[in-house]
């Protein structure tokens, strides 16, 4: 499986500012490494993640997208992560239907104190995406003739 070893997936991670982004910072402060394939986009809350952003990422060649928010009940804005959870459940099952495997999308709860969890989650996610290999690009049918 030398192909998968060399394959460097493009992973987009949306992290909420209050929990998961801080958890990623803590992973950094604690030097808990994870693959450099993960690129983090800071959003105020997981509920800010519009399904459109995820579609866009797959359209542009992302191999995996992960959304990280505060644990249920701990959202800085009280209820944001519940919205994110529902929206993503719906979106991910639709993506699966479109041929983007379930393993390429994920929602995880990482608190500001869980540097270890952030690092292990990213390690797991990246290796799962590596197993799958490169993703098929989503095409934007609106732009086709």
């Amino acid at each position: 499986m030398s192909i998968n070893q060399e394959f460097k997936p493009k992973i987009v991670a949306f992290c909420c500012n209050w929990c998961s982004y801080a958890g990623a910072d803590l992973a950094g402060g604690s030097r808990l490494s994870y693959p450099a394939d993960v690129k983090i986009i800071r959003v105020p809350c997981s509920c800010r993640v519009n399904p459109m952003f995820i579609l866009r990422a797959f359209e542009r060649g992302a191999d995996g997208v992960i959304i990280c928010g505060c644990h249920p009940g701990d959202c800085h804005y009280s209820t944001g992560n519940y919205y994110a959870r529902r929206r993503m459940t719906l979106l991910f099952s639709m993506l699966d239907y479109l041929g983007i495997e379930r393993e390429r999308t994920r929602v995880e709860w990482v608190s500001a104190a869980e540097g270890v969890k952030f690092s292990t989650t990213m390690n797991e996610f990246v290796s799962a995406v590596r197993e799958l290999g490169p993703n098929r690009r989503l095409g934007d049918l609106r732009c086709k003739d």
Partner: peptide
Amino acid sequence: GFSNRQIIAEVDAICR
């Protein structure tokens, strides 16, 4: 400060 266009621009830049 976190507009749709801004976040999409980030996504595009990362996936370029």
